[in-house]
Design a protein around this nucleic acid. Sequence first.
DNA 1: TTAACAATTAAACAAACGTTTAATTAAATT
DNA 2: AATTTAATTAAACGTTTGTTTAATTGTTAA
Lengths: 213, 213
Amino acid sequence: MALNNCLTMSIKTTDKRDEILDAAEILFAEHGFEAVSVREISKAADINIAMISYYFGSKEKLYEEVVNRKLISLNQLQMHLNKLPTYHQQLITCLDILLDKLIERRNFQNIIFREITVNQRTKMSDKIASALHQNFQFIADIIQKGIKNNEFKKVDVNLTVMSVFGILRMYVTSGNMACRIMNLHQSEDIFSTTNKKRLKTHLHEMLTNHLIN
Amino acid sequence: MALNNCLTMSIKTTDKRDEILDAAEILFAEHGFEAVSVREISKAADINIAMISYYFGSKEKLYEEVVNRKLISLNQLQMHLNKLPTYHQQLITCLDILLDKLIERRNFQNIIFREITVNQRTKMSDKIASALHQNFQFIADIIQKGIKNNEFKKVDVNLTVMSVFGILRMYVTSGNMACRIMNLHQSEDIFSTTNKKRLKTHLHEMLTNHLIN
DNA sequence: TTAACAATTAAACAAACGTTTAATTAAATT
DNA sequence: AATTTAATTAAACGTTTGTTTAATTGTTAA
């Protein structure tokens, strides 16, 4: 196998592998795992169909790599957030960064959220649910601390975080639907700086009213 | 064809047809359109595989019927809501009813929301987006009237409704994930009366703080 | 330069797919 | 009771699926 000897060939193999992963990610995000054939992927990545088995073993394992390589973790933010004086600012900052990451990886988010609604591949959806739960807990902790600190009201923390994730998810993964919702012309970009700002402002106001006022 | 003569046979054919539709809905909701084979559907509905083509023409047309027959419309609520004295009460009532409907049809909701994130079958997702948009507009109108009436603050109406839909969607379609979020034991039912009440209370408080206080 | 290994290819594989056929049973109509 | 129509079936259809094979080309290292 090519992969056992990564030291010598690492640069080149990684390139090809990543091209396949990138092409597969886009197709999986657009149409779903089952709807995409390995032949389509091989065409999109401009490689021979046998290369997929050669590099990844199977279509399913390719999919697993597509998912694994882009799971977002917020944990590395902790130190940066600790510098901020209030939990309110920590929360807002954290959510702003999360939104940017989600938009940047919106293709991937389609995959993620489709996977947790589908009772296929339970191992994979457990892993995804676990990763999401980490981020969930990260934000829940901030709110929890804010409540203990009397900075926030005593809200239902879990449902508050669920709401935030629900709002972000709706915005990031709804494509055509989100356009209609925000009353945009089809040409306009939902993820433009202006519209991102609009969502952030809305989220800030909503959360501030919910947690503080 | 059997379908051309519905007057005489309506009762019986409808029965069989509905059994197929019910079985298909569950499978499509659990695994997605492409992941389900007509053979699986025929087994689940306990009918011969050829009956699917016989009744519906094709797997795709079966899917379209599965979707079409259960799209929710809020419009019939209007008269009932008009009796309520405040827009705030109209909003809360409307959302409570919507949540009940969504939970009752949660299998179907998985299909709906998967469809609008997938760039397959554009005709169908346009239709779904249109149906969702109607319900969206219905709630947006209530908030809009409340603002004109000085009952509500001047919030971003579209994003407020998007948030509500996002929250409900997250709750209804996240299965395993929602369990973790709400800190429930695996045995406990996310959609029990208690938990439904918990979500409604949270939603009421959040919206009231956002729109009024 | 040559031997060894990695990368790439076209072709073939069996299995599963959605759909159709032709025959049969059941029901309704005359 | 005879005839027409509907419902149901098992088997086969041609494609497409993911994967593997065996041969070939490229690259690396001795």
